[in-house]
């Protein structure tokens, strides 16, 4: 199994370090051709306007869109914004891979950034997760195909539709590997499904 991390800009090295601690092979993706070697992909934290600009400039937009249709993808913060179907206060396009509506920088500027407990509704270990929220987006609407996997109070902050996983906070800035493990399991599940399909065809 190999998981790509989009390395156009942002904290991609922190995701790389988390996956390495889980003994997963990684590749830093900057070019469309590199996506062919990836069984899953992480869109890191960073600036979403910069991501979209660079995706367009380097012809990654369409390849990423079709990657999201076919394989597991995990986005954190800016990554979540780029994956959403709708962003209420942003001029740039999104990939529309998970049915959520989000507001960018919804808590305010950097002085309003914070650390808060996230309650997980997934996995064996349900201890609170240290949520690092930096100029974070807010999920305003969760579509019918989307499941909430983590909340801060009443608010959804970790969501999935089975193939796409997205967090408004930054698990990669903590030492807690539970959410990265969850994504690795999603990729493993996808690989097993593909192998079964291949056997069925034989």
């Amino acid at each position: 199994m190999r998981i790509g991390i989009l390395a156009l800009q942002g904290d991609f090295e922190r995701h790389e370090a988390a996956l390495r601690r889980l003994d997963v092979d990684t590749v830093l993706v900057r070019k469309p051709a590199q996506l062919q070697d990836c069984d899953g992909l992480i869109l890191p934290g960073g600036e979403s306007t910069t991501f979209v600009h660079l995706m367009r400039e380097t012809e990654l937009w369409e390849p990423l869109k079709s990657f999201c249709d076919r394989r597991p993808v995990f986005g954190t913060c800016a990554g979540l914004i780029v994956l959403a179907t709708e962003v209420v206060n942003q001029r740039v396009d999104t990939l529309g891979a998970i049915d959520i509506t989000v507001r960018r920088n919804a808590y305010g500027r950097q002085r309003e950034s914070f650390v808060a407990d996230v309650e997980l509704t997934v996995g064996q270990d349900r201890r609170p997760f240290e949520g690092v929220f930096i100029r974070a987006p807010r999920i305003l609407r969760v579509g019918s195909s989307t499941t909430v996997l983590g909340t801060r109070g009443e608010e959804p902050v970790l969501v999935s539709n089975g193939q796409i996983l997205a967090a408004t906070f930054h698990p990669e800035l903590t030492d807690d590997l539970r959410i990265h493990s969850l994504f690795v399991d999603m990729v493993r599940g996808w690989l097993a499904g593909r192998d079964r399909a291949a056997l069925g065809k034989e």
Partner: peptide, 18 residues
């Protein structure tokens, strides 16, 4: 400390950028 994590966290988000 949470405060410092949030500060350095923003610097992390700016990596690889201009």
């Amino acid at each position: 400390s949470p405060d410092y994590k949030v500060k350095v966290g923003l610097a992390e988000m700016l990596k690889g950028g201009v």
